[in-house]
């Protein structure tokens, strides 16, 4: 129990200070490894998630509905029309730099597009893809 508490504190302290996509990916990867032995983030699985059509939401059937087919491109909000900056780190260095912000948008967008919370493994894969895509 004590170990768990220490581990959580460590994670929180990492989270509060993490500033790079690598660190954010690591937070999710560690969380995923606790549920799934030997887990390692995969950019390829992340890409599959990005492209998957969930079709639960007419206006936003997939991530690509707003973020376009390439995360290197700027997108457009499918309801309001507001422009959305590129998701890929290669195109937008501000992405995946703030753990609280990343968690907030996974929370909102997974619920809306995927229809449920994304798992730590999915988040780690997604961040891996967005960090590596060129």
């Amino acid at each position: 129990m004590k170990t768990l508490a220490t581990l959580s504190l460590m994670l929180i302290s990492i989270a509060a200070h993490a500033e790079t996509p690598q660190q954010i990916r690591q937070i999710y990867a560690t969380e995923a490894a606790a549920q799934q032995t030997g887990f390692s983030p995969s950019a390829k699985r992340g890409e599959t998630l990005f492209r998957q059509r969930f079709a639960l939401n007419d206006k936003m059937p997939a991530c690509t509905s707003c973020h376009t087919d390439s995360p290197l491109n700027a997108g457009q909000h499918s309801v309001t029309g507001k422009s959305v900056k590129a998701l890929a780190v290669a195109a937008n260095a501000e992405r995946f730099a703030d753990p609280a912000k990343v968690e907030k948008w996974f929370g909102r967008n997974c619920k809306e597009v995927v229809g449920r919370a994304c798992t730590p493994a999915e988040k780690a894969d997604f961040v891996a893809y967005m960090s590596e895509v060129r």
Binding site: V79, T80, G81, K82
Partner: peptide
Amino acid sequence: PRVKSAANCEA
């Protein structure tokens, strides 16, 4: 499509 919505003032 470039306007899309009346919510999109900036268009």
